[in-house]
Design a protein around this nucleic acid. Sequence first.
DNA 1: AAAATGTTTTTTCACGATAAAAGACATTAC
DNA 2: GTAATGTCTTTTATCGTGAAAAAACATTTT
Lengths: 300, 300
Amino acid sequence: MSKSNNVYKDAFNRCLRLLDESKSLPSEPELGTLLRVSRTTVRSILSRMEETGLIAWNKRSKTVLREPRPEDFFPEEETDSLAEIIERSFMRRLLAGGAEAGMQINELELAREIGVGTTSVREFLIRFSRFGLIEKRRNSHWVLKGFTRAFALELTEIREMFELRSAAAFAALPQDSAVWVDLDRLEAEHRQLASEIATRFNEFSELDERFHRLIHRASHNRFIVDFYDVIAMIFHYHYQWNKAEERQRNEVAVQEHLAYIAALKSRDPAKVDAACRKHLKSARQTLLSSIPEGRQAQPA
Amino acid sequence: MSKSNNVYKDAFNRCLRLLDESKSLPSEPELGTLLRVSRTTVRSILSRMEETGLIAWNKRSKTVLREPRPEDFFPEEETDSLAEIIERSFMRRLLAGGAEAGMQINELELAREIGVGTTSVREFLIRFSRFGLIEKRRNSHWVLKGFTRAFALELTEIREMFELRSAAAFAALPQDSAVWVDLDRLEAEHRQLASEIATRFNEFSELDERFHRLIHRASHNRFIVDFYDVIAMIFHYHYQWNKAEERQRNEVAVQEHLAYIAALKSRDPAKVDAACRKHLKSARQTLLSSIPEGRQAQPA
DNA sequence: AAAATGTTTTTTCACGATAAAAGACATTAC
DNA sequence: GTAATGTCTTTTATCGTGAAAAAACATTTT
C-alpha cells in the first residue's frame, strides 16, 4: 500500500472551507502557503475540484462554480496521519485498563492489531518513548511503565520547576515585548470563556494549552518548551478520559488563569510565584485524583 | 542484507575474554545472563568456539582447550550496532564543521553516505531529536539547529536545575540507604585516579558519568534521570573533540568531585548546594569555551 | 523434579521497493 | 522581469520481506 494520501485529503477538506468565502482562488504558491502543503498537492486538489465541478480552472483563473456540499468532503477518518492513528489506538489500549505496569509491548502484534506496518509502529514507539511511559529493552521488547501515580508525580514535579522559572522569566520581559499583546489577547479569550462557561467549558483545554505554551516560551529554553509536549499529551488524553466534574474543574481553572495573568501583568515576582504555584497545585490535584491506583495502600 | 550479526560477534568477543580465566564454561542460560544475550546467541557462540578448536563441547561439558589468540576475535568495527555507527557518522559530520544552523538534513543522502538503509537513519533521527539539536518539518526534511552557544546554555540551565535538586535529594537520603556505599566506592575511585592523574586523566570522563548518574538517580524522577542521557551524549563527543587542556581540566574536576562528595557526606544542604554549584559552574565554562561561535559578535 | 540441552516459533531489525508529497527546473503569462 | 504555471526529479512515508536474535516449547540429564 506504501503511503496514504491523507495529506492531500486533509488539505482538500480545508480548501473546501476556503471556497465558501471567496468567488475565486489565489495562485498555486499562495494556496500552498495557506494550506501548508506543497504546490504538487495544491495541484492535485485543484484537479479534483475541477473534476467534481467545484471550480473552473484554467491556468491563473480558478473560479468557484458552486458551494461545496457535504459529500464533497473526504471522510474525517481518512485525513488522519498514520502516526495519529497509531497514537490513538495505543493510548486507547493503555487507558482502557488491562495495561499493567511491567507488561511487555509487542511491535508485531500492535502493528497487526492496528493494521499497519511494523516500521510505523516502531517509529511511533521511539517517538513516544520520550513521554516516559515505555522503555526499550535492548535487542528485545518494549516494557510498559504504566500510567501510575508515580508517573504523575514525576511529571508534575518537572512541570512545576519549569513553569515557575518560565513565569518568572515572563514577568521580567520588557514592557515592549510582543508577548504582552499575546497575553492581553489570551486574557480577553479567558474572560469571554468565563462568561459563557456553562456552554463552552469543553473549549478550555485548548485555551489552557495555548496559555501555558506562551508562558513556557518565555524561558527561551528548547528543553522547557519541548517538555510541554509531554504535559500536553498527558492532559489531552486525561481530559478525554476523565469527564467527571469537568465543568466545575474548568471553571476553577479559568479563574486561576485570570489571577495568574493579573500577577504576570503586575510584574511582581512574588505575586507571579504565588499565582503560578496555586494553579499548578490544583492542576496536580486534578491529575492525581483521576489515577486510581492506591493498590499498595490496600494490602490483602 | 537485512540485519548484521553484531550482537553475536560482540558477545563472542566478550566470551573469549571469559575463556582466559576458567577451564570450563558454565551452563547455557548462565552464559546468556552473563553476556546479556539469549540462549540462541550463546549456542551460536559455543558452536563457533567448538569449530575453531577453542573448546570441546558435548552437552553439559564445555572444556576450554586453548587460550584465545588475537585472530580468534572478530574485528572491533564489526561489533558495533547500526545505531552506534550512524550516531558516530552523524556526529562527526556535525562537529567536523560545515554544519551551519538551519542546514537541512537529507535522510536518503545520509543513508547512502553511511551505507545503510533509510529506515535505520530515520529511526536514528527520531531518537536523536530529543537531544534538541535537530527538528523535523512535518512531511518534509529535518533541520539542523546546530551545536551553538545557545544550545550549550539551554542545556546547562536544565542540568543545573536538575542536579541541584538531585543533590539535595541525595543528601536527604537515610543513612542506611545503599547509595552511601556506592558513593564511598566512587570516592575511593576518585582518590585513586587523583593520585595517578598524570597517566590516567583520560579515564575521568567515564567516572564523571557514573558519578553524576548516581546523584541524578536520587531524584527518583525518570525525566531527570533520562535527561542525563542528553548531557552524557554531549559531553562524550565534547571530550573527544576538545582535547585542549584535558589533563588540567580533569584534574580540577576530580578535586571538585571530591569536595562535592564530602559535602554530600556532610548531609548539610548548604554545603551540598555550594559544592554542586561550584562544580557545575566550571563544567559550564569548559563546555562554553569549546564552542567557537562569536560570529554575531563580529559584524562584517 | 529441577535445570540443563535440543528444537521450533515468534519477534526484532534492517533492507529495498513504491506511491505520496515536496522540491527544482523550464516555460509561459502578465 | 517577476511571478505564475507546467513538467520533471528527488525525498519522504510506508510496506512486505528475510535474516538475526529472542522466546517458547519439548526432551533429556542429573
